[in-house]
């Protein structure tokens, strides 16, 4: 792990919503090709943290550096940074007025300046990878939740990002669809993609993650390789959380 270059560096990041402190002095380093799972009770700041990485939220203290570029109020750099960071949302957020194929082509044509033909080839390639090539011509409303989320993953992949952020990607899905999406994420992990995943899927964390971070009340309580994390967590809060989430 130490041999790989650092892709994302989060140093002493704090954030407040009004008077409420959502992030408290968070430190995290993510190396290239590393896969991090963030878990923790709701309201612990997991989503806010990864939304800060592509600046959908702004942090107020500390530094976030992506590939050597510090995220700040300078907006000119922002679109450039965002195109290199893929984001997958809990509610999919596909563009409902476009077909799945057009959803996937929008970024490459409008942001990367590809021709429609190039973008279409790339979109079909990634729709194939997420195993829904036959849905290309449909609108998002005609797809199941699992298909929509896989389309959303393909849309992000079409930008060929350097890291993929997942914000509770399976929380809006039923068990069968959860498996479809997790399978795709497994493939993605095997292909060497850098991933930061906020999820409650502990099975995924166990098998795919390089490190699992546990967050509570806005700070990272501990961040350990999954073996250690699940068998021998050091903090009481982690133990309590694991006993709650694994008991059912």
């Amino acid at each position: 792990m130490t041999s790989r270059a650092t892709l994302i560096q989060i140093e002493g990041v704090s954030k407040w919503f009004g008077d409420f402190q959502v992030l408290r002095n968070v430190n995290l380093q993510v190396a290239e090709r590393e896969r991090i799972v963030i878990c923790g009770p709701s309201g612990s700041g997991k989503s806010t943290l990864i939304r800060c990485i592509n600046r959908l939220e702004e942090h107020q203290e500390g530094r976030i550096v992506f590939a050597g570029r510090e995220l700040g109020p300078d907006a000119t750099d922002l679109a450039q940074v965002r195109r290199e960071i893929g984001m997958v949302f809990q509610e999919f957020n596909l563009f409902p007025h476009l077909t799945v194929l057009e959803n996937c082509m929008l970024g490459p044509t409008r942001v990367l300046g590809m021709t429609a033909a190039e973008a279409r080839d790339r979109a079909l390639e990634f729709l194939n990878r997420v195993r829904i090539p036959e849905q290309a011509g449909k609108h998002p409303g005609q797809l199941s939740g699992g298909q929509q989320q896989r389309a959303a993953i393909a849309r992000s992949l079409c930008m060929q990002p350097r890291v993929m952020l997942f914000d509770e990607p399976t929380s809006a899905l039923d068990p069968v669809m959860i498996k479809e999406v997790l399978d795709v994420m497994n493939d993605l992990a095997e292909s060497g993609m850098t991933m930061i995943v906020v999820t409650h899927e502990m099975g995924f964390a166990r098998t795919v993650a390089d490190r699992v971070a546990f967050m509570d009340e806005g700070s990272i309580v501990e961040c350990l390789p999954p073996k250690q994390f699940f068998s021998n967590p050091s903090d009481e809060r982690t133990k309590l959380f694991l006993s709650q989430i694994l008991s059912h």
Binding site: A79, G86, F89, N93, F95, R110
Partner: peptide, 21 residues
């Protein structure tokens, strides 16, 4: 709001975001 966030996450500029999404 998710539509804005999804568009912004792709790296669309504000004008493109309005126009395409």
């Amino acid at each position: 709001r998710g539509q804005w966030e999804a568009g912004a996450s792709l790296g669309l500029t504000r004008i493109e975001l309005y126009r395409s999404v």
